[in-house]
Design a protein around this nucleic acid. Sequence first.
DNA 1: ACATAAGCGAGACGGTACGTCTCGTCTTCTG
DNA 2: CAGAAGACGAGACGTACCGTCTCGCTTATGT
Lengths: 207, 207, 207, 207
Amino acid sequence: MTGQSKHNEETKTGESRGRPRNPEVDRVILEATIEILGQIGYSGMSIEGVAARSGVAKTTIYRRFDSKLELVLNAMNQSLAINEVPNTGSLRGDLKAMLIDSGGLMFLGGRGAAIVGTLLVEREQHPELLEPFHRLIFEPRQRQLHEIFNRANQRGEIDADADHQFVGASLFGSVVVSALTGRQLDESAVDRLLDNIIRSLSTPEVG
Amino acid sequence: MTGQSKHNEETKTGESRGRPRNPEVDRVILEATIEILGQIGYSGMSIEGVAARSGVAKTTIYRRFDSKLELVLNAMNQSLAINEVPNTGSLRGDLKAMLIDSGGLMFLGGRGAAIVGTLLVEREQHPELLEPFHRLIFEPRQRQLHEIFNRANQRGEIDADADHQFVGASLFGSVVVSALTGRQLDESAVDRLLDNIIRSLSTPEVG
Amino acid sequence: MTGQSKHNEETKTGESRGRPRNPEVDRVILEATIEILGQIGYSGMSIEGVAARSGVAKTTIYRRFDSKLELVLNAMNQSLAINEVPNTGSLRGDLKAMLIDSGGLMFLGGRGAAIVGTLLVEREQHPELLEPFHRLIFEPRQRQLHEIFNRANQRGEIDADADHQFVGASLFGSVVVSALTGRQLDESAVDRLLDNIIRSLSTPEVG
Amino acid sequence: MTGQSKHNEETKTGESRGRPRNPEVDRVILEATIEILGQIGYSGMSIEGVAARSGVAKTTIYRRFDSKLELVLNAMNQSLAINEVPNTGSLRGDLKAMLIDSGGLMFLGGRGAAIVGTLLVEREQHPELLEPFHRLIFEPRQRQLHEIFNRANQRGEIDADADHQFVGASLFGSVVVSALTGRQLDESAVDRLLDNIIRSLSTPEVG
DNA sequence: ACATAAGCGAGACGGTACGTCTCGTCTTCTG
DNA sequence: CAGAAGACGAGACGTACCGTCTCGCTTATGT
C-alpha cells in the first residue's frame, strides 16, 4: 500500500520490507506466458490460463503485472533477447543469419508477429506500451542492424551514406507483408529480398 | 464460408424468399462499427456495444457477420475505400498524395494500424481472415501503387525492372515503423522517405 | 433494459418480450440452494457452488436473484412452505405436531436456524430483507399458531384473553435457546416446554 | 485448540519466554473490532479491516485469535460485560433495568443480534463456538436473571416453583422476535412484555 | 388471400475470463 | 521472540461479452 511495487524490476529497488518475492515465481510465469503465446496466440491467451499452466495463483500474477499486455511485454523481453550479432564476413550472410538463423525469432518469426500486431492494435489505447516495446524489442534490433551495416561498409560492400533506418524499415516491411499475405519467407524469397536490400544499399553512380 | 446467407453480398444472390434484409441496417451497423473502432479501438470494441450503438439486435449482426473480425473487415472495406488513383504528373507527387492526401486513411492512418495489427495477431488462429484482408484492403492498394509506378516508368522517371512489390513493402515498412515508434509522419519525414524510395527505384547502371 | 425483471415472480407479469425464462431452471436453482444450505450452511454456501450443483450458469442465477440472500429467501420460501395447520383435537397435540411432526422444518428445525440467524446478522446491513422474511416465513407461522390457539379457545382449553403473540414468542425463544445452547429438543424437553406454554395460557383466577 | 498461546488469557499463563506480548495491542484490536462490528456488521467485517483500523499487522491478530468468530466473541465479551445485577426492589424494575438500562447492550441491543445470529448460522459448522458463547455471553445473563427471580421470590412477588429457564427463554424470544420483525422495543412494548412475563411467573392456584 | 419464409428485436442461456477482494498461511526483516 | 510487512495459494465475488437459442412480431414474396 505504500507505493508502486509492480513490475518485478521495482522489487530489487526500495528498502524491501516484508516477505520478498520469489524470483522463481517470476520465471515460471513468464515461461508459461511464452509457451501459451506460442501455442494459442495473444488474443486467445488468458491470465487465468497462464496461472493454471504455471501453477501459480492468479493473484500472484496480478501482483506483478498490471495487465495482460504488460505481462506479454515482459515475457517477450526475455524470450526475444538478442544474444549476439551475427558476423559471417559478408553483408548477405549477416542479414540472412539475422532473418533465419537467430533462434527462429528474428523480426516476425516465432511470436514476433503477435507482439508487433498487438502494439499496432493497442497503441492508441495504451500509448505507454510503445516505450517499453521500443526499448526492449525494437532498438536492440536496430542497433544490431546498424552494426551489420557498419561492418559491411568497412569492408567496402556498401556505400557510407546509406540510410540505415530506411533500409531496416524496408527489410521489416517485407517481412510484415509476407506475414500479412500468408506467404512463407522461404529460401528463394529471402534471397530475392536480400538482392533488393543490397542493391538499394549500393548507391547508384548516377544520381 | 459454406453458409448460404452470410456477408451481405450474398443477399443479392439467391432466389430471395421471405422478408428481404433491410440495407439500412447494414449501413448503421457498419457505421457504428467504424465509430467505435475510432473511439475505443479494436480490442475494446464489442459486438454487444455495436448492437447497442446502432440500435440493432445482436442477432441481426450475427446474421450478417460471422465474427468480430469479419465485421471489422467489412467496415474497414467501406471506410478505407480507394476512390481514385492520384495522378499528379510526377512519381513523387503521386506517392505523396497516396500517403497524405487520401482522406488521412492511407496505409496506417486512421484505424488502419488496428486492422493490420489485428491481422498480424490473428493470422495463425484464423488464417482464413488473410484472404478477405488481402482482397479488400491489400490488393487494391498494391494495384494503385503498381499503376503509379507504371506511369512513372512510362514517363521515364524510373527503371523498368524495379521490383514494385519490394518498393511497396519498403514504403509500408517505413509507415509501420513510424507507427510502432510513435513518430508522426510529418512533411519532412515523408520527404525523406520519398527520397529513399525514389532512389531505390533508379537502378544503378553499375551492378 | 426496459425495467426491473429480477425475481422470477416478475417474469409472469409484463408483456413478455424475448425468449421466456425456463421455469425448470428456477426449480433446479432453488433445489440446489436448499440442498447446499442443508449441508454446509449459509455462510459456507457460494453462488458459484449453487451454479455448479444445479448445472446452471452463474449468469443465470444472477439474472434472477440479485444476491445470495435474495436467493436463499426464495429457496426458503419454497422449502419452508406450510401445507396445513395440524388439527389433532387438543392444544397439546397441535403444538406438538407443529414442533415435531411437520416435516422436521418447524421453527428452527432443518435450516430454519440458519435463516433466522442470517436475518439477525444482516438486518442492519440489509433491512429490506426483513419484509420478505416477515411475509414469507414469519407471518404464516404466526397465523398457524393463532388458529391453533383459537380452536383451543373454542374448546375451552385456554383463556380468551391470552396474548398469542407473546406465547408464540415464548415458544420460539425456547427453541432458539435450545439451538444456541446445543441442546436437542427431545421428547421430554418438548413435553416440559408444552407444560409451561399451556400453563401460561390458563390465566390464574387470582390476578 | 491444541495451541499453546492462543486467546490472550493464555498469555498470562505459561513461563513467558522471549518478548512479552504488548497488552495494549490486545486492547486496540478488540476496540477496533467492536467499532467495526457496530458500523458494518459481522458479515461485512474482515480481519484485514480490523488490522488496518487498529494499525496492527494481520499476523498479530492471528497469533491471538484463531478465527473471526473467536475474535468477535472476545470483543463481545468485553463490551457486553455485565457490571452489576440491577436491584431496584421490584421484579418489574429489575427486569426493566436489565432490558433497557444496561448500556443499551442487553440481549439483542447493540451488536447482540449479530452475535446471536452468527451462532445460529454457524452452530452446525462450528459447534465448538457454542461453548465460549455459552460461557461468555449466555450464562452470565442467565445467572443474572436467576438472581433477579430469586430476590423476587424472597420478596414473595412470584411463585417458588416457576421455571426460570422457560421464563428467560420467553423474555429472550420476545426480544428476538422484535428484532426479526424490525419493531423497536419501546417503553410501552416493554411494559406489555413485562406484564406477560410477570403474569406467567405467578402460578395460578387453580391448575 | 394467404401460406411460406426470412428479417428483426428482445432477451434467456451456458460459458469463459475478467480484475478485485478477503481469507489464512508463509517468510523475511527489524527491534 | 514479538511485531510489521508483504508474498503466496486459494477461491468467490459480481460484471462483461461471447455465440447460440427461442420467442413474438413484421414484411415481403409466390402461388
